[in-house]
Amino acid sequence: MIDAYRRFMNIEAPPAPQRPKGFFTDTSLCIGCKACEVACKQWNQLPADGNELSGNSYDNTGALGATTWRHVQFVEQAKANNSRVGQRWLMMSDVCKHCANAACLEACPTGALVRTEFGSVYVQQDICNGCGYCVPACPFGVIDRAPKDGHFEAGRAHKCTLCYDRQKDGLEPACAKACPTDSIQFGDIEELQAKARRRLADLRARGETSARLYGMPESTEAAEVGHLNAFFLLLDRPEVYNLPEVPRLPRKTMAQRYAISAVVGLAFAALSAVAFGRRSG
């Protein structure tokens, strides 16, 4: 039946799922060269976002957005008393997490956001009508809608595609290819997870006691959004890198929200019935 419909409508069958692929971003290796950010913009032909000095260390692009799909943070911190003791400079290349339970994908009313055969979350540009619902849904502030009056794919939602086009041709994503320190590693997600566990044990053994992995299946942040197909090794609490402690998946509370709304609605319906009841008034 469905097959006949597909043939009739000339709809391609979706590609068969493959072993999921993803990123392991090991921030302990990042040197802040921003090669990933530039490689991403170049491969995806994304425009620059503006030329303004932020004053926040060497980060002048600030955050991920519709036209910045890799972004390198410079967490420059020191004690407020101006002693240089414990001063540190943490670098972290941020990216769409390609969540196992992706809030953006669940929110999307048109079906433009899909899960690809590689396990990544992808915006189909020919479907997206720019309703903008994925934007506030994402707990990480990743996806954004390009301005309606802009020059770049105006009024549609954009984010990292995990280089779907490159993956189709068996290439690794541009950022991972460009990263000179292997801070960004691309590969089979389970292999990457095993690698990350080994790396964490190694760092801990060497005294980096606050190192941790963010986005592993067993970690707290996976409670709602599941494991992240782009996960991280961090050197401090997630919030230091602007990452939520337990990213929320809106779906989890949706039934309760509908129920509350329904109760109020029913109460009002009952009140109206009573108000107009023949005996009243």
Partner: peptide, 20 residues
């Protein structure tokens, strides 16, 4: 490396928002 708590700096990456 010291933790944010030891440095006494507040959580968060400068004042960039977490969500869009």
């Amino acid at each position: 490396s010291p933790r944010a708590a030891e440095l006494g700096v507040p959580a968060g990456y400068y004042d960039y928002p977490v969500v869009k």
